[in-house]
Computed example of a mutant assay.
Amino acid sequence: MTETPTAALSSAGVSIWLDDLSRSRINSGDLQRLIAERNVVGVTTNPTIFAGALANGESYAEQVAVLSAEGVDASRAVFEITTDDVAAASKIFSSIYESSDGYDGRVSIEVEPGLAHDATGTVVQAQELWAKVGQPNAMIKIPATEAGLVAITEVIALGISVNVTLIFSLERYRAVINAFLTGLERARTAGHDLSTIHSVASFFVSRVDAEIDKRLAAVGTKEALALRSKAGIANAQLAYQVFEQAFDSERARGLLAAGARKQRPLWASTGVKDPSLPDTLYVTGLVAAGVVNTMPEKTLEATFDHGVVTGDTVTRAYDEANAVLDAVDATGVSYTEVTELLEKEGVEKFVVSWNELLETVDTALRAAR
């Protein structure tokens, strides 16, 4: 049999994770199908995903009725519902987790977005989520805000696996890696088994293009327009270079020798925003060994159907990637301004989704009463 594109992607060293989760997907067997037929080896979630699942999910009615009878508020109900889904999905992936020695089979759940600038609150809730899910292959998602960096170190130091989210700039990515390594150093001092602590760093891709392309179009010159839809991939390619350099440092090598695992880059926001672009652009354009690509189902199916995997498309592109970002800067479009805006907007969008989720659940609880 000819190897499918998703199988080829896996063979090239890319772990395919699904950027979606719902109880109906779990109960119907669809998640198991994607594991068997689409090479999916993990799942990521966020407040937007759960807001959509709860808004359209009859499969939650029974649990909502029970929670309503118990008199819990919407916030507690969301905690119970989402952690139950993540625990159930984690059990489905347990065999992959075990066979890959913890490398894959991961399911992520995010702290409340309202805690993005509250390091102490993030650490407290990360522990609550970790304990409630109760599965070793879970990951707690923490945004890479300034406060998030502090929390990442503290949570890693506690021996909890972390998915760092909302990374847009290379500078912030370096700070994320430093927070991870500092956390490992503290975990080692505390006597934790470093081999059990896993982390990924979610570097967002298509949102970078969406914002930079808008600004390039406003500049309107031939040179600016020729750069559209190139910055997102270039930025991610250079992130991989940062990853390679950081984990080849003396500091990192010492921790790896003590049993630690590398914090893998994860490509997030890999669904194209511009319909004129190839729908597999942020998959086939970012193939490198040891990365994760978390895809919405539409992107996953497009990749399976017609993705062309040609091997590594990252490590030989560093010079070209640097040239792209330099050229963008030369047009007057500020990389720093864009990435700072995207972090701010990313947090705000998740807060909106979280509030929609609370409203949906609150309405359901009141209806059940």
Rank of each mutant, 00 (worst) to 15 (best):
M1E: 13
S15Q: 13
I16V: 15
I16Q: 14
S24H: 09
R25H: 04
D30S: 10
Q32V: 06
Q32K: 13
L34A: 06
I35L: 08
A36I: 01
V40C: 05
T45G: 05
P47S: 09
T48I: 12
A53N: 11
N56G: 12
E62L: 08
A65T: 10
A69Q: 14
E70L: 10
V72Q: 12
D73V: 02
S90W: 01
S90P: 00
S95F: 01
S95C: 02
S99R: 15
S100P: 09
D104H: 09
G105C: 06
G105R: 11
V107K: 11
P113Y: 07
V123A: 09
V133H: 11
Q135V: 12
I160Q: 04
N163T: 04
V164N: 01
F168T: 04
I177A: 11
T182P: 00
T189Y: 00
D193P: 06
T196Y: 00
S199G: 08
A201Y: 02
K214T: 14
K214F: 00
L216Y: 08
K222W: 00
A224D: 08
A231W: 05
L238A: 11
F243W: 15
F247M: 07
E250S: 15
R253D: 06
G254H: 01
A258E: 13
P265F: 07
P265V: 14
V272R: 12
D279N: 13
T280C: 02
V287W: 04
A289H: 09
N293M: 05
T299H: 10
A302Y: 05
A302L: 10
F304Y: 11
D305W: 00
V324K: 08
D326N: 13
D326G: 05
D329T: 15
D329Q: 14
Y335L: 09
L341T: 13
E343P: 01
K344C: 02
E345A: 09
V351I: 15
W354D: 09
N355L: 13
E356S: 14
V361G: 10
A364P: 00
A364E: 10
R366W: 00
